[in-house]
Simulated assay, not measured.
Amino acid sequence: MILSDYDINGMIQMKRLIIRPFYNDMVRENGIDMRLASEIAHHKDMGSDFVMDPMSSNEDIKKCFKIKRNVKEMVIASREQVLLTTSEYMEVPDDVAGFVELRSTWARHGLSMPPTIIDAGFKGTITLEVINNAPYAIKLRPKQRFAHIIFVKLQNKTGNTYAGFYKGQRGIKLPQVLK
């Protein structure tokens, strides 16, 4: 069951769903709009001979990204993939999951974002993987409404709340090493 604004507001009032900072205009008809934080991670140009091995080490992964913090604007070049993050921290109850989507206005400008799942019990900010498919650069600014989360009620509480690599993240969290 997809949660309505009534359901979401009730969960927030009962402190079952925690969002900080919270703005009243975040809650939409059937989801929540999330804003961008002032942080962006660009891929570094490692040269055409470089091969990223996602099973190597965290240090190798860190070498491939440049994270900029406290930026006033973020420019995504044409055909570039970047990591962004929400300014809001959230704690999701153990009987709710979420689907994070790009707000349609940004998709109409040429941006895309692979689907992101928020598992039951997740706590943290949301790292967003964004691709600019447009033939021109696109400028984003912190605090702009950017992503939309649709919450779904699980039939039962999960027996295994989220305890993965990204639990408790604040800001952009680079990819984990695959095992």
Rank of each mutant, 00 (worst) to 15 (best):
residue 17 L to M: 09
residue 119 D to M: 03
residue 129 E to Y: 03
residue 173 K to L: 15
residue 121 G to P: 08
residue 107 A to K: 13
residue 161 T to D: 00
residue 7 D to E: 15
residue 154 L to D: 03
residue 12 I to T: 06
residue 31 G to R: 03
residue 76 I to V: 15
residue 66 K to D: 12
residue 74 M to H: 01
residue 59 E to T: 14
residue 88 E to N: 10
residue 94 D to W: 00
residue 87 S to M: 12
residue 169 Q to G: 08
residue 104 S to H: 10
residue 157 K to I: 06
residue 101 E to K: 14
residue 118 I to L: 04
residue 95 D to K: 04
residue 146 F to A: 08
residue 117 I to E: 03
residue 69 R to Y: 14
residue 145 R to L: 12
residue 79 R to Y: 14
residue 18 I to N: 13
residue 135 P to N: 14
residue 25 D to A: 03
residue 36 L to V: 04
residue 130 V to I: 15
residue 155 Q to Y: 04
residue 174 L to Y: 13
residue 119 D to S: 14
residue 3 L to E: 06
residue 113 M to N: 08
residue 51 V to Y: 12
residue 167 K to Q: 15
residue 59 E to G: 06
residue 97 A to L: 06
residue 174 L to N: 12
residue 10 G to E: 14
residue 108 R to T: 03
residue 118 I to D: 01
residue 131 I to T: 11
residue 76 I to R: 00
residue 148 H to L: 04
residue 149 I to E: 07
residue 44 K to P: 05
residue 84 L to M: 06
residue 115 P to K: 06
residue 152 V to K: 02
residue 109 H to G: 00
residue 29 E to I: 09
residue 46 M to G: 13
residue 4 S to F: 12
residue 82 V to G: 00
residue 166 Y to K: 12
residue 84 L to C: 03
residue 33 D to Y: 01
residue 97 A to E: 01
residue 15 K to P: 06
residue 138 I to L: 14
residue 65 F to T: 05
residue 112 S to Y: 08
residue 14 M to E: 15
residue 106 W to D: 05
residue 179 K to L: 08
residue 59 E to V: 11
residue 116 T to L: 10
residue 111 L to D: 07
residue 95 D to E: 09
residue 132 N to E: 01
residue 127 T to W: 09
residue 52 M to W: 14
residue 51 V to I: 15
residue 173 K to F: 11
residue 47 G to R: 14
residue 50 F to G: 07
residue 104 S to V: 08
residue 32 I to H: 06
residue 26 M to G: 07
residue 37 A to I: 02
residue 162 Y to A: 07
residue 58 N to F: 13
